[in-house]
Design a binder for these strands. Structure first.
Lengths: 215, 215
DNA sequence: GTCTATACTTCGATAGAC
DNA sequence: GTCTATCGAAGTATAGAC
């Protein structure tokens, strides 16, 4: 008999809030702790290598050489950890993106930016995460939309001053088409698919050449 | 968060095997059991609603109104369950796809087929799963490549007999471009993104009209 | 300010009773 | 052919010692 799982306490049931619901906030590690940064690094690596579902406090702890509870000291809940990764990454990307889009060939830059393995994989993981953890969905889609808005503005500006010529095609349409397919390509590649990939790259290059000149 | 709880068994560390590694296969439920079909139904629903990471034997059991061990009776490991979902779904889709692609407007059919919410969400979940559970990655990408090959053949045939005119653009390139972006669109939509979506649909319609005629 | 001890829950999976 | 009893590992999270 013994030990059949007794009904435990009502116990806050892990209600998926960021940090703390509204009362007694538990203590957290300082923003500029080296350990904290390491935890974010490790989480990034895990997400890229095995997907968001592979991120657990224990695994992050092992990879970082610390104990699991320490992870919760810096990030009370896993959602907090994911959000920290998202924010750090987004801040870095905003800078990189601005530099790239300012050049003579914004479309080509966009394609390069979005086919970057790391960026594409990240965005995909976060989209999957947004679907799974509704509590951080808003944060994720807000960032994604923000990037898109910046890119759209860059393309529209380039069309306006004649740096690129889309032949009358919608800038927003082209942007989304390129963004989504670059992401898709990288994800397919990651699982070993390859049919048609070379052809898309050639096709896109052809379209970019037509819009921005040069072969 | 669910995530694999792999037994630490000595068992050939060569990675997960489907069903049984090589000896004593445990008993399994019959292929045509009603319960078995229900478990696959429930798993599909869970994957669509909360993502692959939300699929646990316990959750599946609750939703199906059975006990958790019964899930393992039909599907010794969770990977077996995922593979069953994949196979059943793929078989259904092959039929649907063949019917659609045989028509006068294969490109339009392709776009419709791939922007179907359920299909797109599924493929995305399986790609994520392939990344997370490497043991079934091959199975997943093999199916995806098989679908792509069929689609490619359909497009090439349509180009050959003049039903569509791609203006010299690569059929494989166009195919991958449409497939990846349709999937991306659906996923973005699922998390609440919308910038540029209308424009892509219009853009694609424009391109399809050019290739297959008609407005 | 940082980390350890530890609680409690849920996981995948198995053995063997019905 | 189906389900109960139960295991041991791993999961998130909290309290309180340094």
């Amino acid at each position: 008999m013994a030990v059949a799982n007794q009904p435990k306490k009502p116990q806050a049931k892990s209600g998926r809030k960021l940090s703390d619901a509204g009362g007694t906030r538990r203590r957290t590690g300082s923003e500029d702790s080296k350990t904290r940064a390491t935890l974010i690094d490790v989480t990034e690596r895990l997400m890229l290598r095995d997907g968001y579902a592979a991120v657990t406090s224990r695994r992050v702890a092992v990879e970082a050489g610390v104990t699991a509870p320490l992870v919760h000291y810096y990030f009370p809940s896993l959602d907090d950890l994911f959000v920290a990764v998202l924010r750090r990454r987004a801040e870095q990307q905003v800078v990189r993106q601005a530099r790239l889009l300012a050049g003579e060939e914004p479309l080509r830059a966009l394609w390069a930016f979005n086919t970057d393995r790391k960026s594409a994989r990240f965005l995909t993981e976060f989209i999957g995460l947004a679907n799974h953890r509704k509590s951080i969905r808003g944060e994720i889609s807000a960032y994604a939309e923000r990037f898109r808005a910046i890119e759209l503005a860059a393309i529209e500006a380039a069309v306006a001053d004649g740096r690129i010529d889309l032949g009358g095609l919608s800038p927003a349409g082209i942007l989304v088409l390129l963004s989504t397919s670059s992401r898709g390509l990288v994800n397919e590649e990651a699982i070993g698919m390859s049919t048609g990939h070379e052809e898309v790259h050639a096709l896109v290059e052809q379209l970019l050449a037509r819009a921005e000149g040069r072969t």
